[in-house]
Design a protein around this nucleic acid. Structure first.
Lengths: 195, 195
DNA sequence: GTCTATACTTTGATAGAC
DNA sequence: GTCTATCAAAGTATAGAC
């Protein structure tokens, strides 16, 4: 560890923690185990975070912040809603296919945080949903979309994407980009053959 | 508690455990907390299960067994694949909308079990997936379905349904049956307006 | 920054009286 | 079947030397 800079070491600590938390759960992972994985003593870890909860929060917050920045940058320009939807889906599907550990934490471990921390993340989470709902509303107003509630449709989409961590493997036959294509296809026109 | 039969008491214990495990996670819930919720002493609980892990396993196994029985009974008769798909989706969507706690455990806590227990459940889980993949394969052979990989389509569906625990509330505006309709609609023909 | 040593709490589980 | 009492192990976190 000493061969790296503080920032590099910190990243290793956080990545390793994210990996263990994702694999065995936040509550199911002890500081001891994290220390063993890093070949450090428990006490040494507290140089990189002030508590276990603080560690989880920072991992999750960083991940959401990065994702939100990219999503927002997708909308700096004014595109037609159909194009926005396609971009959103491809970005979202591939972003988390590329960082499975973080996806797992964001989906599963939010409730492990105490209210103060949790509320700050829920607000960001809401932002994701609102972006998609906004696009769908636009699509409906322009007559492109069925009259399904935008909330139901949004959560159907997030369900498809978030669930990928249970089965999708990046080293398999389907690339993240293809995955985005499949999801786009299913979500917009369904699995049935068009007549 | 004493006013009920052993079977009734046991059900209360297991339901309460399922609720706590779902809410705060298996690792995040202590036997102490469960005892408090039931107004019993910790030690008294061990009359109903032999270990915490045993408790989790039994809750999950019971739930999967019931679901599998119902799913299999849906296929005792020979229906066209289109009808099977519709039945499967409606059953699945409404079954777990009605027992949110169990759904959460099945989706989230499988990895908390040691291999011996886990493997038995994974086998049952595989059965769910195989049923749906089988239906989709039939649909493809008969030319009703696009050439999307059946695995991707299956997991897209399970993602939509499993994710409901994050947002769907039975006391809201959408009934479980309507939810099944919406999912059917999205999954088969997508959110876009048909031309 | 990392170590040793330690404080203190909470954990799952058992023994044995009633 | 529920209780009191108790245990060993594991949990998070801190103090202070180097």
């Amino acid at each position: 560890m000493k061969r790296h800079s503080f920032h590099q070491r910190k990243k290793i600590v956080y990545d390793t923690a994210a990996h263990l938390f994702a694999k065995r759960g936040y509550s199911g992972t002890s500081i001891r185990e994290l220390a063993q994985a890093l070949k450090l003593q428990k006490s040494s870890l507290y140089h990189y975070f002030k508590s276990k909860e603080d560690l989880l929060f920072k991992i999750m917050d960083d991940s959401m912040t990065v994702a939100l920045q990219k999503i927002d940058s997708l909308y700096a320009y004014d595109a037609p809603p159909l194009e926005k939807l396609r971009d959103f889906m491809h970005f979202y599907a591939s972003f988390y296919a590329g960082d499975r550990d973080r996806l797992i934490l964001l989906v599963n471990e939010l409730d492990q945080l105490s209210p103060v921390y949790r509320d700050r993340l829920i607000e960001k989470e809401r932002h994701y949903v609102e972006v998609l709902k906004g696009i769908l509303t636009e699509l409906q107003q322009q007559g492109f979309m069925k009259s399904i509630p935008t909330a139901v449709a949004s959560f159907a989409f997030f369900g498809m994407v978030h669930f990928t961590y249970k089965w999708y493997r990046q080293d398999g036959q389907v690339t993240p980009d293809q995955l985005g294509d499949f999801f786009w296809d299913i979500f917009t026109t369904g699995i049935f053959e068009q007549k």
